[in-house]
Design a binder for these strands. Structure first.
Length: 117
RNA sequence: GAGAGCAGACGAACAAUCGCGUAUAAGAAAUUAUAUGAGGAAAGUCCGCACACCCAAGGGCAGAACGACGGAUAACGUCCGCCGAAGGCGACUUCAGGACAAGUGCCACAGAAAAGUAAACAACCAAUAAGGUUCAGGUGCAACGGUAGUGUAAAAGACUACCAGAGGUAUUGAGAAAUACCUGCUCGGUAAACUCCGUUCGGGUGCAAGAUUGAAUAAAAGGUUAAGGCUGCCCGCCGUCUUUUGAAAAAUCGCAAAGAACUUUAAGGCAACUUAAAGUCAAGACAGAUGAUUGUUUAGAAACAGAAUGCGGCUUAUGAACUGCUCUCUUUU
RNA sequence: GCCUCUGUAGCUCAGCUGGAUAGAGCGCUUCCGUCCUAAGGAAGGCGUCGCACGUUCGAAUCGUGUCAGGGGUA
């Protein structure tokens, strides 16, 4: 779990981010980007979504969520995704390809998709 | 040694680096330090409780669950003991295990007949008929107790012996029941068919229950005894209702450390369990915490699987390697 | 969290007040038809009734458990 100021919490913020429909996807993941920032001081907020449609078991869904979270944490720490800073919010949604994936696969997916943007 | 039966335990360990939730302490704050952080099923939501609120002026009809007996428990559809039945050579296992002799229904095809003191196709007696009987044949899951004999014209519980059931009496037991004797009493199956009997349940909603604080609870128009509420329905009772526009939808508690709690010991009890003493305090969010990488050990860095108000059960899923007791067979002494 | 419904042929559905060969439409295969195709006609195979256990003489149907899928509600 990321620290509290990096988490996206409000329901209205989710709706706003989804409605922009600014997204990038492959078979594993789908990333939604929110509005562009006015103030550079505000930190970018993240949310991770693994729907029950992906898989029935909570263990597998939790596993995917944790891997995504860890991957984002490490990328932020190493400053590899600087181009993310201009967005207010980012939602990462898992797709069916991510079932049973290891850390390497998830990490590469996120890195590639963000870099493309 | 082989094959079974029952019960039990375990649910990888250690280290390093980078991280997350909660609590406590320090600090103006950023933050820092310390402690701690997922199961035996957390699952399915199948039962039972606690807890909370709503409705409870009544009356009637429904309804649901359970079902040998005795106990345990907060309670249970759970557990323990025991009886009976069924299965197994046995250890042992399984059982929705009240009543069809209160009433109603159903029992296809076949068969005379599927339950009503029941047919007379063939058979038997007899000269024939009237009559007697349901033995034998045949049908069917099931044919009006079964087997063997006596008896008779031929037969039949008509009579006898054994077996099965029913009723009664006596003894034993806390009881289900068991044992013995008597009565020829013999009346089909099905209640996981309706139903009857007994027992239990005030009803409803589930922590998004609900409580407190804050905000709001205002205005306009229209309609009229219909709608709405009170238990599923009826009676009965209460009672204005609908539409449009506006605002709000946040925080704290519930709830996270104290109880039907857990561990050990002792006493009582066949046991479930109870009582007493000592010790322990052990997750807790609200977009929702337990992760990532590496190394070593084991067996290949293993199964099923992730807390959301809390407990007691049941059911289902579950890798590898184990432990104890018991039974049967075989071999050796 | 709570409530509720459905699993039958390749697909969409009947049958579910127990009685036997489990039906209908579309589809599929073969044949007829036509110069060829379509329409039309004839024939055919198509099923562990989600699974397990039970009740019953007999279960798709009744009961219990279980698995899977869908819907509603806050």
């Amino acid at each position: 779990m990321l620290t509290k100021n990096l988490r996206l919490k409000k329901y209205s913020a989710f709706i706003a981010t989804y409605s922009l429909n600014n997204k990038a996807a492959d078979e594993n993941l789908c990333i939604y980007f929110g509005k562009e920032k006015q103030d550079a001081e505000i930190s970018t907020k993240f949310a991770f979504v693994v729907s029950k449609k992906i898989h029935k078991r909570a263990v597998i869904r939790n596993r995917i969520k944790r891997l995504m979270r860890e991957s984002v944490r490490l990328l932020l720490k190493n400053n590899k995704i600087e181009n993310l800073n201009k967005y207010l919010s980012v939602i990462i949604v898992a797709r069916k390809g991510s079932i049973g994936a290891d850390f390497e696969k998830i990490n590469n997916s996120i890195y590639d998709l963000i870099k493309k943007k």
